[in-house]
Simulated scan of single mutants.
Amino acid sequence: MKLTLQLAALYNLLWGAWVVLFPAHFFTLVGMETPNQLLIWQGMGMVIGVYGLGYWWASYNPLRHWPIVMVGFLGKIFGPVGFVINYLEEKVPFEFFYTLITNDFIWWIPFGIILHKVHKDYRWKLTN
């Protein structure tokens, strides 16, 4: 659990810094038109970076700091849901999907395992 959260923290800090410092780079990489309002994209990078700090702190005691993991997990579920809705409404191009692979999908199982362990531990404590 500790390693998973520390890897997630490092990833989020790096991704957030990349988006804040080089906001047009992702769009260039995937061949998308660069949005006019890069400030919104940079704001998203800042939020992702802050999640990295939360994951790092949660890594010291994941069972105690499970709400941070849950908030991150929910974001990793709702992000793709939002993409699908916006893609179907033709508000976002398919190329934006690439952000979901490393920002969301690869973390579903590890974060799910941590939250499952939390659930089992709390349930055990309640019955003993």
Rank of each mutant, 00 (worst) to 15 (best):
K125Q: 15
L74E: 03
G49T: 07
G43P: 09
F26S: 06
W18Q: 11
E90L: 09
F94N: 08
F96N: 13
K2H: 15
K117I: 01
K2F: 05
F111I: 00
W108F: 00
W124Y: 13
L5F: 02
V47I: 14
V50M: 14
G52I: 01
H65A: 13
M44Q: 10
G16Y: 09
K2Q: 15
P23S: 05
N128D: 13
K117R: 14
M46C: 10
K125D: 11
F27Y: 15
L38Q: 07
N86L: 11
P35C: 02
L7M: 12
L13S: 09
G72D: 07
K117Y: 04
G16C: 06
Q6K: 12
E33A: 12
I106N: 03
G43V: 00
M1A: 13
G75F: 05
F26E: 06
K125V: 03
N86G: 10
Y60M: 02
A58S: 11
V81N: 05
Y98R: 04
A9V: 07
R123T: 11
H119A: 12
W66D: 09
L10C: 10
D104S: 14
G112D: 13
F96R: 02
T4F: 08
K125G: 05
G49C: 09
F97V: 05
I77H: 05
G82S: 07
L13P: 10
L126D: 11
E90C: 01
K2E: 15
Q6V: 03
H25T: 12
F97Y: 15
P23A: 04
E33C: 00
Y60L: 03
M44T: 08
P23Y: 04
N12E: 08
V69C: 04
G31P: 08
F78N: 04
K120L: 13
P93Y: 11
P35G: 06
K2N: 13
I68S: 11
M44W: 12
L5G: 04
F26L: 08
Q42I: 00
L3D: 15
G43L: 06
H116V: 02
L10D: 01
L39M: 06
F83W: 14
V118E: 11
F22Y: 14
Y55P: 04
I68N: 07
M70E: 00
A17M: 07
I77R: 03
F111V: 00
Q6S: 00
L100P: 04
I106C: 10
L38P: 05
G16H: 08
T4W: 11
F22P: 01
F97N: 08
F97H: 11
L53F: 15
W15E: 06
W107M: 00
N61F: 04
W18G: 05
L13H: 07
L3G: 03
G31T: 06
L53Q: 02
P23K: 02
I113V: 13
W56R: 05
K91H: 12
P93D: 13
L14R: 00
A8W: 04
H65L: 13
W108H: 06
F96M: 15
P67Q: 12
E95N: 12
A9I: 06
Y51D: 01
